[in-house]
């Protein structure tokens, strides 16, 4: 479904990704793990069209999306739930969710999608008319995920969904992700919380210094010595 081939990308003169190749099949849950600054976020932002690769190619369902703008990528059905929530702080929760359905294919069905999505997030449903900036971190993360679903994405990408959240909330976030995966949405997750994310995913890639150094089934990675030592602190 999604295929990166030898992608180099970075900010300005600094190259962060060096020849990253990876793929995601329809219906799969794939994760990219790695330390701070390894290039995980850069990978997702490159797929989302926020960063243009300096070389290599990205294909989505057979179409070359390497040079597309971010908003064009969204129109194709790729949605990124960015690191640190990134809500529209002065808008209400409802407005935030409706912005999620901005993409043309989602716009007409926005109200119907809203009902569906809210079933998954009862807590968010209670807060529809609150200003998003006034929510707690955990609630904001839930709104961010809900907003991502509002686009009716074909591929949903999570960037560090557990960042800055209390462990209890992290459990909740991952249980939501599990349920999203069950509904058949294709998912690509980037996380530092390696244990949780490997449990949730089918397959995983390990990214170090902008290079993919390992790729395997999630369970295999959990048992991999390098992963255990480097990321699980074992």
């Amino acid at each position: 479904m999604l295929e990166l081939e030898a992608v180099d990308a970075g900010y300005g003169a600094t190259t962060i990704l060096h020849g990253v190749s990876l793929n995601v099949q329809a219906g799969e849950a794939v994760t990219i793990i790695g330390g701070n600054g390894a290039g995980k976020t850069t990978t997702l932002r490159t797929i989302a069209g926020l960063i243009r690769p300096t070389s290599g190619s990205i294909r989505f369902e057979g179409q070359d999306i390497t040079r597309l703008e971010a908003h064009e990528v969204v129109e194709l059905g790729i949605t990124l739930i960015p690191e640190g929530r990134q809500l529209f702080p002065d808008m209400t929760v409802r407005e935030n969710l409706l912005m999620g359905a901005f993409r043309r294919k989602a716009r007409e069905q926005a109200e119907a999608t809203l009902k569906e999505v809210l079933q998954l997030f009862p807590r968010v449903a209670e807060r529809l008319d609150q200003i998003a900036g006034s929510l707690s971190g955990g609630e904001q993360q839930m709104v961010a995920i809900a907003r991502g679903l509002m686009a009716r994405p074909r591929l949903l990408m999570f960037d560090e969904p557990s960042l800055g959240l209390a462990p209890i909330i992290v459990e909740q976030v991952f249980s939501v992700i599990d349920r999203i995966v069950e509904t058949g949405v294709t998912v690509l997750i980037v996380e530092q919380n390696v244990h949780h994310t490997l449990k949730a995913a089918d397959r995983g890639y390990v990214l170090e210094n902008g290079r993919i150094v390992l790729a395997d089934a999630a369970e295999a990675l959990l048992d991999n010595d390098h992963v255990r030592q480097a990321y699980l602190g074992i």
């Binding site: 949605t79 960015p82 529209f88 702080p89 907003r147």
Partner: peptide, 15 residues
């Protein structure tokens, strides 16, 4: 308004 409040997020909404 979305662009003003959060440019990156607005792009991710398809704006």
């Amino acid at each position: 308004r979305a662009v003003a409040q959060n440019r990156d997020a607005a792009q991710l909404m398809g704006i």
